[in-house]
């Protein structure tokens, strides 16, 4: 059957790049970039994850169907993160409610 056999050299190159990126992210983390530290670290992590998915997991040579599943998985993850964080991050925007029992509304006049 038509299995895609990748040259060993490709795997070694990908592996060397992954180790290099690990060294890079470890080094960059020692420099204080303020809020940019986490951004850089996550960008490098995404690069590493993409390399693993595309080459080690063969997604690069897989059929369209696997690409759809992969993209769908990321899309669901994006929904999970976006909706959860948009809730928590916007809570301070609205004024805090008054404690129970101190409402201005009088029910029993």
């Amino acid at each position: 059957m038509a299995a895609h056999v990748v040259a060993k050299k490709t795997y070694f190159t990908v592996f060397a790049t992954l180790i290099g990126l690990t060294a890079l992210t470890t080094y960059v983390a020692t420099i204080d970039l303020g809020p940019l530290n986490i951004v850089v670290a996550l960008l490098i992590a995404m690069c590493k994850a993409s390399l693993v998915v595309l080459f080690f997991m063969h997604l690069r040579w897989s059929s369209r169907l696997m690409h759809v599943v992969g993209v769908a998985a990321l899309f669901w993850l994006a929904i999970l993160l976006a909706l959860t964080l948009s809730d928590y991050r916007t809570r301070p925007w609205t004024p805090a409610g008054k404690p129970w029992g101190t409402s201005n509304i009088q029910f029993n006049r």
Partner: peptide, 25 residues
């Protein structure tokens, strides 16, 4: 099994900066 193994590797790729590196400066 290889796909599963690589996936577990990817999880660690994200755990490493989130747990170890955010306080490394």
């Amino acid at each position: 099994a290889g796909l599963y193994w690589h996936f577990v590797d990817i999880i660690w790729i994200f755990l490493y900066p989130l747990l170890y590196l955010i306080g490394a400066h």
